[in-house]
Design a binder for these strands. Sequence first.
DNA 1: ATCCCGAGGG
DNA 2: CCCTCTGGAT
Length: 215
Amino acid sequence: MRKADIVTFFERLRAQRPDPRGELEHENPYQLLVAVVLSAQATDAGVNKATRPLFARVKTPEQMLALGLEGVTEAIKTIGLFRNKAKNVIELSRLLIERHGGAVPGDREALEALPGVGRKTANVVLNIAFGVPTIAVDTHVFRVSNRTGLAPGKTVEAVEARLEKVVPAAFRLHAHHWLILHGRYVCKARKPDCPSCIVADLCGSTEKTGEKTGA
DNA sequence: ATCCCGAGGG
DNA sequence: CCCTCTGGAT
């Protein structure tokens, strides 16, 4: 995608959502971290359904440890990969207390040293909780970046590096949310809603007999 | 490359 | 039924 089109692309998404936010419910950075860990290969709606009652009681790592592995497992049983995630949440909580006084660290190295936290999760926490202009590449961002031609790449690492290059600084802080929300509601994996897409004229898959119409 | 793994949509 | 969902660890 050309530079001028990239600017137009984000200007339109910004006009549509001036202050985009993630949809994972949380009251503090710790709950955010847990919610993002739980969101791996799961929908936000599904995560929220489980964390709503959980977070009503648990707001700190100490309270999570008090609940215990059994309690956490039971609480998140409706989310995919729940056994691994429950273990990670308990161990991650223990490490936050041991290494960071119970607080969520604001640097990538410390975040990625926690179980269940990889580059994508660290980028989301850094962006939302600490205002760092990271662009986390999840399934939506990866798909939208490739399909539109905004930042093509075969791996999430390649796409993230490409986004860092092509996304103007003015859009970087919110680029992640604009892309993910666009991907979730319009540029969907199965049946992209191109007729209602406000950047369809800039999209690489629209003009070339792409995956839009299939024609 | 493979495993983990439930809910929702089509 | 199959695919997708804000991936990470082995």
